[in-house]
């Protein structure tokens, strides 16, 4: 499953989410809005979300750092 995470450099929940993925050996593609501000518009249009992190795992979309949902979708303990 492909994992993509939208983040912002100053967002503590984004750091937490990335740390979680790294700790569990999950490879992911990061789109940092500080570096690519235009991605904010794309994400807003696609998902209606105006906050990060947003984590896309295959067809699942996880808004915020929701650890239990992430564990379930990624099938990690």
């Amino acid at each position: 499953m492909k994992v993509k995470i939208y983040t912002n450099s100053s967002c503590p929940y984004c750091s937490k989410a990335k740390n979680f993925l790294k700790e569990h050996g999950v490879k992911f593609k990061e789109i940092n809005l500080s570096k690519y501000p235009s991605a904010a518009k794309e994400l807003k249009e696609k998902t209606g979300q105006t906050g990060v992190p947003v984590i896309l795992v295959g067809s699942h979309r996880i808004v915020g750092f929701d650890e239990s949902k992430l564990r379930k979708v990624l099938k990690v303990k």
Binding site: N8, C14, A40, Q49, T50, G51
Partner: peptide, 15 residues
């Protein structure tokens, strides 16, 4: 919340 409302400008300003 997360659809227009935010508590963190440093996180969500680009939207």
């Amino acid at each position: 919340i997360g659809k227009g409302i935010s508590f963190c400008a440093a996180c969500d300003a680009p939207f």
